[in-house]
Design a binder for these strands. Structure first.
Lengths: 134, 134
DNA sequence: TAAAACCATATAGTCACTATAAGGTCAATA
DNA sequence: TATTGACCTTATAGTGACTATATGGTTTTA
């Protein structure tokens, strides 16, 4: 299978596939005589793994770490669970941050309506004066 | 006032101040004979405005747009409100995405405990098998 | 046979900084 | 006086995860 078919089958761009290879996330495949990359089912699985991790917004470094664990099947899996726990913590903290942000934005928005001149705009005023509760 | 004092007074790095100048967000200040930048109160206000916008996670492009509006004080301010509404929409949609993500991660995490071998790790298994509900 | 679709590499751009290198300026101290 | 330290300058590269572009070779299809 060539790079286009691999990419389509997993739903990424061919550029992204080459990028993952450069980053060491996807093993370099064999080449045809013309230099074209030839992929196997193993590559499809490996790329699909990366894609699923990315959908969960794991970083490439975290995916790398997971791949390293896969090469030591008889080690305890605590590190994997920890990695996921840390990621969950990260996601939750980002949600909290954004919820605070949303409140601030909504409150700022409430300080104006559409029928003013820019000079009197409550939003611009709120951004200009320092009465923001950090 | 020199760049260090300006930066400290607003809580950013001097590099960031120069970066904003290059990006056209902060007007180029006068220079001393030795080439040092000299800032005024106006610059402090301008930088503080940028900083407050950044705390609300407005992009530099959006901040630029707001600054353009400021130069036309008698135009109606609807565009400003719209910019903020769009940003609120963006933040809300990101929150929703992350909440979905969190559920998926927690469910994945529940499929394992710390006492297994990597080979049998529920988390790794969940990432490897394609039974993810997108 | 020619066009379309595919493949290759290399390089630059995105965003908002942050880090590093290499050097000039200035005031206070040894 | 020399030197240390804190400041300032510019230029360039790195971050993360791609995405876009340029340039050219190969294969497939009409």
């Amino acid at each position: 299978m060539r790079i286009g078919q691999l990419a389509r089958s997993v739903g990424v761009d061919t550029q992204t596939v080459r990028f993952y290879e450069r980053e060491g996330l996807l093993p370099p495949p064999d080449r045809q005589d013309n230099g074209y990359r030839v992929y196997t089912e193993r590559h499809v699985e490996r790329l699909a793994f990366i894609r699923r991790c990315r959908i969960l917004e794991l970083s490439l470094a975290e995916i790398h770490e997971l791949q390293r664990y896969q090469t030591a099947p008889h080690q305890p899996c605590r590190a994997i669970n920890t990695l996921l726990d840390d990621h969950i913590t990260h996601v939750r903290s980002r949600i909290t941050d954004l919820q605070v942000l949303e409140k601030q934005l909504v409150s700022l928005r409430a300080s104006c309506n559409d029928d003013r001149e820019i000079e009197a705009c409550g939003v611009l005023d709120g951004l200009s004066e320092g009465n923001m509760q950090q």
